[in-house]
Amino acid sequence: MFKRVFKKSSQHQPSAVMTIDKLNESLEMLEKKENLLVKKASAEVEKAKEYSKAKKKNAALQCLKKKKLYEKQIEQLATFQLRIHDQMIMLESAKATTDTVDALTIGASTMKAMNKATKIDDLERTMDEVNEQMEDMKQIQDALSAPIGAAADFDEDELEAELEELEDADLEEKLLQPIRAAPAAPSRVPVVKQSPRPAQQNNEPEDEELAALQAELAL
């Protein structure tokens, strides 16, 4: 039953789109009429004010009556717009539902076709063959890794014990080796800095002048 309903709806999907476009056009037309009626009602209010100032009471009342009529039409147009909006929402929801059902139907059909292409018996037979080949490969690898000839007669426990003895002997030899003393650092001879000769040459004239002065004082 649901399939027939949704299938029928999907067949009329282009009509639904056209209907939504038509409702949009009607909605725009109603909005234009509403704006026009609002302007007319405002104009009647202004006229009523002018007639009231001119002491024309009846004319002012007539203007207010027209304003009331325009307001009723505006209310009707608002109701029409609300109904159109409601109808558009329902159509858009129905279209979304139809699109979802169509997508699910396509997915189900694809899954069904894939299941038909891959039968359970074929899958089980394939998995058995894969497992059998893996088991054969494991047996071949075990056979290739098994020792043959003279190597098959070796005792693994004896070989490991011998290896431990060699390691212990090597460690003992390293411990018994004497520790070499590090070479002593060469002693450094302190360098005595000598004053440069030019400084002494600069002091000689002063010593000569001092000696001459002392000789004069002695005289």
Results as ranks from 00 to 15, higher is better:
K72N: 12
Y70C: 09
Y70K: 07
M88D: 02
E75F: 05
M90I: 14
E75H: 08
T79H: 08
H85K: 15
L82A: 15
E92I: 11
L69H: 07
S93A: 08
Q73V: 06
F80W: 05
A94W: 01
V101L: 04
I74S: 09
A96P: 00
L69K: 12
I89E: 06
D99W: 00
Q81H: 07
I74D: 05
I74Q: 14
T97Q: 03
A94T: 04
Q81M: 15
T98W: 00
D102Y: 02
A103E: 05
T98F: 02
D102F: 02
Q73T: 09
Q81R: 14
M90G: 08
M90N: 10
H85S: 15
T100L: 12
I84W: 03
M88H: 01
L91H: 03
L77Q: 09
M88S: 08
T100G: 09
A94Q: 03
I74V: 12
V101N: 06
T97W: 01
T79P: 04
I74C: 12
A78D: 08
Q87Y: 04
Q81N: 08
F80T: 02
A78G: 12
Q73K: 13
Q76T: 06
S93G: 08
F80L: 12
I89C: 07
R83P: 01
T98M: 04
D86T: 14
K72W: 05
I74R: 13
Q87V: 11
K95L: 07
V101S: 04
M88W: 02
M90L: 13
Q76M: 11
M88V: 13
